[in-house]
């Protein structure tokens, strides 16, 4: 589903964010990425749909090249990759439904969409996705009137509206309290179980990661330092991921 080889990302002038990452994620996996701040989790997720431009390496998603794709091909690959962000990234002044409809932009005819016109079928998909996260009754509300947990559910509905093959979630619960963390992670798990979508989530909470993941991937200083099932995450592995080396 996601095949990454030799991925390297250097930010100008010479900050190495990712330093040669190889990772293959298969269809239907629920992968949680662990790592300290600055280990490369966010850069890795954002490189998969090329919100961050890779410096070297190749990325394939759903059997299609992401690296090297021209603008039109890149857009058509992005349609299949839903993304959820730590700060929700909703358009605050727009309604909940309009935010979810944005997930249909990759499929909508460009000119009508620019004056806010969407096909009836796009509206049906958007409303279905809102119902799927349990917020169908808030469709007409302005996005910034919702609580943080509700906004993140709207953001998940927007990603679902893309009818994606993969959902990438970059620290989706870092701005939420423990109870809402459970709500959001449960929704992602249900999407994974019921729809068979591949899910890749970065998490800073170890316990949450172990509870939900099929597979844990650890990043350290821009490289993979662990890859295995939650049951293989021993205290030594945790130290390998999180220790800065000074205590040893």
């Amino acid at each position: 589903m996601i095949e990454v080889t030799g991925l390297r990302v250097v930010r100008p002038p010479d900050t190495v964010a990712l330093d040669g990452v190889d990772l293959t994620i298969t269809v239907g996996e629920f992968v949680v990425i662990l790592g300290r701040s600055g280990a490369g989790k966010t850069t890795f997720l954002r490189a998969i749909n090329r919100l961050v431009e890779p410096t070297a390496g190749t990325i394939r998603v759903d059997g299609r090249d992401v690296t090297g794709a021209g603008p039109a091909r890149l857009r058509s690959v992005r349609r299949r990759i839903g993304m959820v962000f730590q700060q929700f990234n909703l358009v605050r002044r727009a309604t909940v439904l309009d935010n979810v409809l944005a997930g249909r932009l990759g499929y909508a005819a460009q000119l009508p969409s620019l004056i806010g016109r969407f096909a009836g079928s796009d509206r049906v998909v958007a409303l279905d996705c809102l119902d799927a996260v349990g917020l169908g009754h808030l469709a007409r509300r302005r996005a910034d009137t919702l609580s943080g947990g509700e906004q993140q559910r709207v953001a998940i509905a927007r990603a679902l509206a893309q009818t994606p093959a993969v959902i990438l979630a970059d620290e989706p619960t870092a701005s939420l309290d423990p109870q809402l963390t459970t709500t959001i992670m449960d929704i992602l798990r249900d999407i994974n179980a019921d729809r068979g979508l591949t899910i890749v989530v970065s998490q800073h909470q170890l316990e949450v990661a172990l509870r939900y993941a099929h597979r844990i991937v650890g990043f350290r200083a821009g490289r993979l330092c662990f890859d295995g099932p939650p049951s293989a995450v021993t205290p030594a592995v945790v130290r390998e991921i999180y220790d800065d080396g000074s205590a040893a």
């Binding site: 749909n49 919100l51 857009r75 058509s76 690959v77 992005r78 349609r79 990759i81 839903g82 993304m83 962000f85 700060q87 929700f88 990234n89 909703l90 358009v91 605050r92 727009a94 944005a102 997930g103 249909r104 932009l105 990759g106 460009q110 969409s113 620019l114 953001a155 927007r158 893309q162």
Partner: peptide, 22 residues
């Protein structure tokens, strides 16, 4: 706020759609 722009870009929207919606 660049966040919504990222989010709209990630849906596979065109540049014009990103300007219009993000």
């Amino acid at each position: 706020d660049p966040g919504p722009v990222d989010a709209i870009t990630a849906t596979g929207a065109t540049r014009l759609q990103v300007l219009r919606f993000g």
